[in-house]
């Protein structure tokens, strides 16, 4: 019968089309591909850089916990899933490729004026590091003191007026506080 033939054709077309259009499962990085340690020092000024033990952290956390959707792993955050459920592995997984080190500069702020931009609230590089690390360390009992991860430099001691720049006993004195 004509109708049956048509139906078969239609079903076949849908099936083939479906297979063709089926999204290719995004490639996923393996933790084993990652470096053993990562030196995080591009912003080091008041504190020295961090020798980040990447290998150790891959044992206690999944890739997506820090790298979001970029490693191609399964995204669980409901806000991210909306767009990144199947976005697959990104071209880069390095923090600084997405999180700008000149956050709040005129340039950075004007880029965020784009009305089509969803990520208007993406932290800068320094914020991204600390929000990622500190938030997890607080939850899991990891180190949270500033100098637990990076020691203060001399420039830091000057700004924080501590160490060799600490207020001396004679000039300090009790502050009334009004």
């Amino acid at each position: 019968m004509r109708t049956r033939k048509k139906m078969l054709q239609a079903t076949l077309a849908i099936a083939i089309g479906g297979i063709l259009l089926w999204p290719e499962p995004g490639r996923t990085m393996e933790a084993a591909d990652a470096p053993e340690t990562v030196e995080i020092n591009s912003l080091a000024r008041l504190y020295s850089g961090v020798d980040f033990n990447h290998a150790m952290h891959t044992e206690i956390a999944s890739c997506v916990q820090c790298h979001h959707h970029t490693t191609g792993g399964e995204v669980t955050d409901p806000n991210c899933i909306r767009c990144h459920a199947k976005s697959g592995e990104a071209d880069t997984v390095s923090c600084k490729e997405c999180h700008s080190s000149d956050r709040f500069s005129k340039d950075d702020l004007s880029k965020r004026d784009n009305p089509a931009l969803y990520h208007i609230d993406k932290p800068g590089l320094k914020g991204a590091y600390h929000l990622n690390c500190v938030t997890c360390h607080q939850k899991t009992g990891g180190p949270t003191g500033c100098q637990d991860c990076h020691t203060m430099t001399e420039a830091g001691e000057k700004m924080f007026q501590t160490g060799q720049h600490a207020p001396s006993e004679t000039t300090g004195g009790e502050h009334s506080g009004h």
Partner: peptide, 15 residues
């Protein structure tokens, strides 16, 4: 404190 050139505090800022 640094930017506004305010007086030295009684205690360091990491106290």
């Amino acid at each position: 404190n640094e930017e506004q050139k305010l007086p030295q505090p009684d205690k360091p800022f990491d106290d």
